[in-house]
Design a protein around this nucleic acid. Structure first.
Lengths: 226, 226
DNA sequence: CGGCATCCGGGAAGATACTG
DNA sequence: CAGTATCTTCCCGGATGCCG
């Protein structure tokens, strides 16, 4: 009962299929969301909780133990944080593919809580590589406890990095929702800033340039004034 | 209680994140495996069950109802079969991405049951597009009740099709496991056929050519003779 | 206070038997 | 063949309490 127990005991799809095997490991409730929260940085128990509204300490502990047993997460004794292993980081493509499909499904409401990590990870879905390729813009996102600096790779993909203090050509400050609405919503950045949803520091034009490199999702009304 | 109930009532991750939204729809136990079974053809209740060892009628019915409510599956009244909608077929990439990751995880045992559909879907993971591109080979897989003919696209991807009677340059007959072991295992096709695991009809050399276009997974001992 | 362990209630999943 | 009915088991979610 040290914490290393319960590996693949439960939820066993008794199949040779790699899909079944994968789902034996990451098919449990909350599992993929826990992985998402750790995708960009190691975190302490409480920090993970803050990104997963509704999860209880017991369930989170259980899921973390399972992920540790499966080799996706490590928890160095005495240091008190949790981090992904290479196996866990290998789930990035899965996360993005599932989220990409989720975007196509009706009922998606971006006004609900969006965790800082989630907001930054979804950049990988929204940013258009063709538009972003070659850009040397650096974005900063300050969502309170969690802050990120995002560079752009040569082929136009965002390279997020968790930092202590967000920095870049511009910095957007606000909750995850507001940041997402500002970057992916139909309204210009200046309008969102004027509305008080987010605070823009640095080069406001650069912020708008960045938003223009991202796909636009329609907001379910109430976001755009008549 | 017609069958249209229970949409997103349960398992609600109350998030705006597209990942959470997706998992609200396909995060339930068995859900993705049910989708997999329908990926290549419409099926009747009992046929779906045969591809999901361990599922009980009640659970399968519940999952199908949920998928119907979510718009991923249709069940034309009176006809008695279930089929994917375009939304459901859109999960193909998710299935493959998850399975691809599953292949990298230790503990994967291809000797366990592999459903016919699963065996053919995994062709998308194992076939090397560079090796297969330009090939005009057509494979047939006869796994009893379920049979498939597989062409190869110009860019080297397999194009499976469920058929009544498998046909092609060669036809492999046997259970899913044996077919998978023959195609992706380290041993030559002729050896597997001699061992009685599978039966090869048609051009045996073509069958070996096909196997050579696929990646090889190591079998967990007992498959390769000392 | 953060990081859990424990206890309890509700409900989904598993097993089995049965019916239209 | 396509489910339904029932019973049991066990996970999830909520609250509380311990412990460094």
């Amino acid at each position: 009962m040290t914490s290393s127990e319960g590996g693949e005991r439960r939820l066993r799809y008794d199949e040779g299929c790699p899909l079944g095997h994968a789902l034996n490991i990451i098919g449990d409730r909350w599992a993929l969301l826990v992985v998402r929260e750790l995708m960009l940085s190691a975190k302490r128990f409480q920090a993970i909780r803050e990104g997963l509204p509704g999860i209880t300490p017991g369930v989170l502990k259980g899921r973390l133990d399972q992920l540790i047993d499966a080799g996706l997460v490590i928890h160095p004794p005495g240091l008190g944080y949790y981090a992904l292993t290479p196996s866990g980081r290998g789930l990035r493509g899965v996360l993005l593919e599932v989220a990409r499909w989720g975007l196509t499904q009706p009922g998606h409401d971006p006004r609900k809580f969006i965790s800082p990590t989630s907001a930054v990870v979804s950049l990988n879905l929204m940013m258009d590589p063709d538009l972003a390729a070659g850009s040397s813009l650096v974005a900063g996102f300050d969502m309170g406890r969690e802050q990120f600096t995002v560079h752009i790779s040569r082929d136009g993909r965002p390279l997020p990095e968790a930092v202590d203090a967000a920095d870049g050509d511009f910095v957007l400050r606000g909750p995850g929702n507001a940041i997402v609405m500002t970057m992916y919503g139909p309204l210009p950045v200046a309008h969102m800033a004027a509305g008080g949803a987010v605070e823009v520091a640095g080069d406001a034009a650069a912020a708008q340039q960045w938003a223009d490199m991202c796909a636009t999702v329609p907001m379910p009304a109430a976001a755009s004034p008549g």
